[in-house]
Design a protein around this nucleic acid. Sequence first.
DNA 1: TAGAATTCTTTTAGCGTTAACCGACTTTAA
DNA 2: TTAAAGTCGGTTAACGCTAAAAGAATTCTA
Lengths: 336, 336
Amino acid sequence: MTKKVTITDLAKRANVSVTTVSQILNGKDDRFSSKTVKKVRQLQKEMGYAPDFNAQSLIRRSGRTIGVLVPNINNPFFSRFLRGIESEAMAHDYIPLIFGSNNNQKLESHYLFESIRRAADGMIIASAISDLSYIDNILTQNGIPYLLIDQAPVVKGDKVDVNNRLGGALLANYLIKKGHQRVVVVADENPTLNMEERLNGFLETYRKAGIPVNDDQIVKTTLTKDGGYQATNQALLQKPTAIFAINDEIAIGLYRGIHEAGLTIPDDISIVGYDDIDLAEYITPKLTTVHQPAFEMGTTAAQLIIKRIENQSEPIQRVSLPVKLVERQSVERKID
Amino acid sequence: MTKKVTITDLAKRANVSVTTVSQILNGKDDRFSSKTVKKVRQLQKEMGYAPDFNAQSLIRRSGRTIGVLVPNINNPFFSRFLRGIESEAMAHDYIPLIFGSNNNQKLESHYLFESIRRAADGMIIASAISDLSYIDNILTQNGIPYLLIDQAPVVKGDKVDVNNRLGGALLANYLIKKGHQRVVVVADENPTLNMEERLNGFLETYRKAGIPVNDDQIVKTTLTKDGGYQATNQALLQKPTAIFAINDEIAIGLYRGIHEAGLTIPDDISIVGYDDIDLAEYITPKLTTVHQPAFEMGTTAAQLIIKRIENQSEPIQRVSLPVKLVERQSVERKID
DNA sequence: TAGAATTCTTTTAGCGTTAACCGACTTTAA
DNA sequence: TTAAAGTCGGTTAACGCTAAAAGAATTCTA
C-alpha cells in the first residue's frame, strides 16, 4: 500500500517547490505562470492529493470545527437540531463534531477534552451541565467560546433557548379548556432543566386553575419510545382522561401501550406531547403537541457561535425562540 | 481570551522539558520520579491541558478516524447502522467521521477528499457509488483501505451485505401465501443497488408464481415518510389488496395516506415494509416487514475495516448478514 | 574508590503545511 | 542604457507534538 500523497510528492512530480504548490492550491494563482498552475492542478487531480488537514490546522491554529454536546443523538428533536447546526456550519466551512453524552458527567468531560484536542474553535452545549464552573474554567483557559442551549441563565457564554415554562402552560391551558380535570404527566426520571421547566409550567397552570396535580399523577420514565410504552400501565392506573407526555417520543410509546390495552385515543383517553417531531403528523390520531423550532435552534446556535469565534469581543447574546401549540387530533373534549 | 494551553505552557510551569511532559502523559510514568509525575498530572488537570490532536496525528500519521459515507443520516436504518459503527469504533479508540451524501456524486467525492484530508485511516462506504474505479484510485493512492456496504460484488475492498433479493422474495412469498393477487410496490425513484435487488427478488417471486406485477403497479417516490404519503393516491388507483413499501419509512407515509383516505389497515388493504426500524412496532397496526440487522452491519463493518487498517495484508473478506421476515399485524388473509 | 548500572531528564529531528520574506529574471519607461 | 517595476519562483521558520537517542545524576558493585 502506498503512503498518503503529500504536497512534497506533488511538488517533486511537478518539478517546483513545495511552496509553489501550496500557494497555487490556496488560490494565489496569479503569482505563477498559467503553465505552472495548470500542471499543478492537473497533478492534484491525478494523484488524488488533499492537503493534510492536521498539518493545516496545526499551523492555522484552527480546526474549523465546532464541538457539539447533546444528550442523545437518536432523539428526533436533537437530530433535527443537529441538522440545523450542520447546515449552518457547513455553509461557513466549519464541521460539527457531535457527541452524545447521555447526560453522563464523565462522558461529558471526556468529550469536552476530545473537542479541545481536536482543535474545536467553539462549542455548543445542549446537554445538561451539572458543573458549569468546571467546564467554563477548562474552556476559558483554552480560549474556546461556548454557547448553551436551554440552560439556566448564567453570566457567561451565549445562549439559545425556548420558553419551556410557557410551552408547558400552553398545554395545560388547552387541556383545561377541553375539560380535562384528571391528568397524568409522564416525565423523565432524570429531568434536565428544560424538562423541569415544561413540567413546572404545566403544573403551575393546573394549580392556578384550582386543579392540583399531585405526585401520584406524575409517572417517571426514560425519554424514549420504550420508556413511554413501559410507563403506560402505571399511568392508566390513575384513571386519567388525558396524559401529558413530556416529549413526543414518550407519547409514541404511550400510543402503543394504550392500543395494546384495548383503548382508543382520543375517545377513551387524550394525549398531548412536546417537541413536534416529524412523526407527530404520521401517527393515528395525529398528535397535538408543542412545536419547538429545533432546526432554527440549530442554525441560530451555529450562527452565534461562529460569530463569536470570529469576533470574541462581541457582546454576549441570548436568543429566545418561540414555541407554539399545534392542535391536531389526539385530544377530545371531556364533559364531566 | 487566552490561547489554547500547549504542552510547552505546561512544561514551563512544571519546570521540566516538553518531552518529559509528553512521556508522562503517554503512560511512561515509570521512567520518571513520582514527584515529577504527580506534578505534571496535577498541572494537566489544573490547566485543562489536552494534547493537540492535530499535532499528534500529524506525527503518528493517523487520525484514528474512520470516514463513513451514507446516503442519508436521518433514515432510521442508517442511524442504527451508524450507531453500530460508532460503538465498535469507539471501543477501538477510533472516531467515525460521518457524511450524508444524498447519493449526490459531487458531494460524494467532496467528502472523500475531506476524509483523506482529515487523515482517515479507512473508509466505510454505504452510499451508492457510481464511479467505483475513480474512488478506488484516489483511495488506493492515498493508502486508505475501504469497505463497501451492500454494493455489487467487486474485486477490491472488503464487503458487508445482506441478501436483499432474498428479503424481497420472503415478502412476496408471504403475500402470495396470504392470497394477495393484486399488489402495488412503492419503490424509490433513484434506486440504489440494494433497493433494486429487493424489488427484483419480489417481482421475480411473483412472476414465478404466475402472478406478474406490471409497471403500472410500481409507483416511484422518494425514500421518506413524505414520499410514501405523496405516493398513496397513485398506489390506491391500482386497487391493490396489498402494498409493498420498499422501506419502512415509506410504509409509515402510506399508513398516513391510507388513514386519511378513510381506509383501514389491514382490513381494507395490507402493507408490508422493509428494514424493521424501531418504529415498526409502535405504529398501529404493527408493521410486518423484513428485519435487517442494521446495528450488526455497523459493528461488523467497523470491525472489518479496523482489522484491515491494522493489518493491510489480511485477505479480503465478504460478510453476508441474514435477513428475516417479521410477521406482525399489517397483513390480512385475502380470500378472493 | 573507580567503573558499571540504574534512574531520571533533556536534546535533536521531523511529521506536512503555510506565512513571511527574499531573489532572480524579464519587461517597461525615461 | 539603466533603473524601476513587474513576473515567477524559492528559502526559512514555525505550528505542537513524539520517538529515538544522548546525557546527567545517583546508586550500586567489587
